[in-house]
Design a protein around this nucleic acid. Structure first.
Length: 233
DNA sequence: TTCCTGCGTT
DNA sequence: AACGCCGGAA
């Protein structure tokens, strides 16, 4: 734990928290819905996922066994707004099958495993990459792990707080080695970075005037008219 | 790298 | 019409 790096990261966290307030993630009624949402949201706007989840609820399919036994056409019909529906159908069914075969359909038994084992097991499943695995560990199993997404890479790149290349494990290691291992902190930090990337720092339409980190940003100087350059990731 | 491939925003 | 989205696989 480097004191200076910790101060930098906590300063960023506090600015985001003061600006956006607590985000109360993950937005789901239960753990199963949380996991389905995590798969459906891959490279898709969350608004589309909300529709897909609602479609599943209206078909009474937010349930491990009912979803696993449902017809492919019915699931595709429901999740179509979340894009890549053929792949995501396979991913969802594979996850359900795994929990049914290995844990008798009980998610809690799956979550009981230690973080490292849980992560390995999640990564072995189709459609579960590093980000989705960590999201499920943090917001589903409620174990402290730092989630890295495209916004996180954009943030460290723009603020110049760490050296590249900004690969998933390197960025994750940077945050986890310089922050207290705290479930609430990791929960809010990722959710706040998402709010920042989603609401403020969205590519061409970036609202630098409203950004609580503008004075730390290497390319977003407000005192001169300057075209934004895409961050190198 | 490319494919997957819906929808609100600009 | 083009962009970009709470990515992952091959």
């Amino acid at each position: 734990m480097d004191r200076m790096e910790n101060m930098k990261l906590m300063d960023i966290y506090n600015r985001l928290y003061n600006n956006f307030g607590p985000r109360h993630w993950w937005p789901a009624k239960d753990d199963f819905e949380m996991i389905i949402g995590a798969i459906l949201t891959q490279n898709v706007a969350w608004k589309n996922v909300e529709v897909a989840i609602e479609n599943l609820y209206s078909r009474d399919l937010i349930d491990l066994y009912r979803l696993y036994n449902a017809k492919n056409e019915e699931i595709i019909d429901a999740i179509r707004p979340a894009r890549f529906f053929n792949q995501k159908l396979r991913y969802i069914k594979a996850f359900c099958k795994h929990i049914i075969d290995e844990y008798g359909g009980e998610l809690d038994k799956f979550f009981d495993k230690d973080t490292k084992t849980l992560r390995r097991e999640l990564l072995s499943l189709p459609g579960i990459g590093e980000e989705t695995a960590d999201v499920i560990i943090l917001y589903g199993a409620r174990k402290p792990i730092f989630v890295v997404d495209a916004y996180t890479k954009r943030l460290v790149s723009l603020l110049g707080i760490m050296d590249g290349p900004f690969t998933y494990p390197r960025v994750q290691q940077y945050f986890m080695s310089n922050l207290e291992t705290d479930l609430y902190l990791f929960n809010e930090y990722h959710a706040l970075i998402d709010a920042w990337g989603n609401i403020i720092c969205r590519g061409k339409a970036a609202k630098c005037a409203e950004c609580p980190l503008s004075d730390l940003c290497s390319i977003c100087t407000l005192d001169r008219t300057k075209d934004r350059i895409a961050p190198v990731i």
